[in-house]
Design a protein around this nucleic acid. Structure first.
Length: 111
DNA sequence: CACATGACGCGTA
DNA sequence: ATACGCGCCATGT
């Protein structure tokens, strides 16, 4: 992937406020690379251990944590809950409520 | 070039 | 709401 892609995505991830979440697809689009959702996930997975980015604030478009069953997923849920995010019984997050930026998660794109 | 893989997303059943 | 199939784009074999 182009450095521009990585730069844009990583910067966006850093902009996600505590207690809020964003999704792969939305980040890709905001970064200027629509339909590159998979690459956002790829990028986050390639992040080194000592990074300061809130990678855990990124979930799938359905509001669920990716790669269930892995330590990453387990840890991610804990971190999100620590920021006050609530999970449904099926382990999903309400993007309508916690999604960031809000414009990207409102029914008609209007706030 | 063909085939397989991946922290995804959407439409349909 | 859940499960399956297919599209998407880059990378490795």
């Amino acid at each position: 992937m182009s450095p521009a892609f990585e730069h844009a995505v990583l910067q966006l991830v850093g902009q996600i406020p505590p207690g809020r979440v964003s999704s792969y697809g939305v980040l890709a689009q905001l970064a200027g690379f629509p339909r590159h959702a998979r690459h956002v996930g790829k990028l986050l997975g390639q992040l080194p251990e000592g990074h300061a980015l809130p990678w855990y604030r990124v979930v799938s478009s359905a509001g669920s944590i990716s790669r269930p069953g892995t330590e990453q997923a387990d840890w991610q849920r804990v971190l999100l809950e620590q920021e006050g995010i609530e999970f449904s019984a099926s382990g999903k997050i309400s993007l309508f409520r916690y999604g960031w930026p809000a414009e990207s998660y409102t029914p008609c794109g209007v706030g």
